[in-house]
């Protein structure tokens, strides 16, 4: 039976876990490609983490653990629905409002190229590059979250960056 929340658990939750909401959402979104589904995953993650509050002190890194749980739940949901992984919605790559019309067009083209290239990355590279570039995790943290050796993390980051650069250079040369 669940005990009523103690002040200390509540305080830890508010200070360390609640602020991760957006980060967990972006990660779930990256895996699922669906906003409402990603929101559901985040809620499930928060419930699951809360239910494990008695063992929080055993976790070396609460944030990494939350990311791992998010990953597992998102992948489970993705598999159960046979969902194809998509990319983030269009409005997330809007260029600056101060740009000239030509710059706007060019920026949109560049962002579109990268977005397309991101969607073509293998799932592991896509997750690794997201955790590194968007969420700013260390290689060690990414290795913990994905449960793979750090050497594999570095290789995946390297390959993903090169793929994105090559695609960008190729498309811009052809454009």
């Amino acid at each position: 039976m669940n005990r009523p929340p103690t002040e200390s658990h509540r305080a830890v939750f508010d200070r360390e876990i609640a602020p991760l909401k957006d980060k967990l959402f972006r990660y779930a979104m990256r895996i699922l490609g669906d906003g409402p589904e990603a929101e559901d995953v985040v809620q499930d993650v928060l419930i699951k983490v809360w239910q494990k509050r008695e063992v929080w002190q055993d976790w070396n890194n609460i944030e990494a653990m939350c990311m791992t749980i998010t990953r597992n739940l998102a992948i489970d949901r993705s598999r159960s629905k046979h969902r194809m992984v998509k990319d983030l919605p269009d409005h997330y790559d809007e260029p600056s409002k101060d740009a000239t019309p030509d710059q706007l067009t060019e920026a949109k083209d560049v962002m579109g190229i990268i977005k397309q290239a991101m969607s073509e990355l293998p799932p592991k590279q896509k997750e690794v590059i997201h955790l590194r570039e968007v969420e700013g995790h260390t290689y060690n943290e990414i290795a913990d979250i994905l449960d793979i050796p750090m050497s594999q993390v570095k290789i995946n980051v390297h390959r993903a960056r090169l793929f994105l650069r090559d695609r960008l250079n190729k498309e811009q040369l052809e454009g």
Binding site: P4, V42, I47, W50, L88, D93, M111, I114, R165
Partner: peptide, 29 residues
């Protein structure tokens, strides 16, 4: 320029936020 484009793209992605209000897990349960 390629590194600039990539880093700009990822910085914009970092601004994506959840729109659903945070539910207190105990109540949600």
């Amino acid at each position: 320029p390629a590194a600039l484009a990539l880093t700009t793209f990822f910085q914009k992605e970092k601004q994506v936020q959840s729109t659903r209000p945070l539910e207190i897990p105990a109540q949600a349960k």
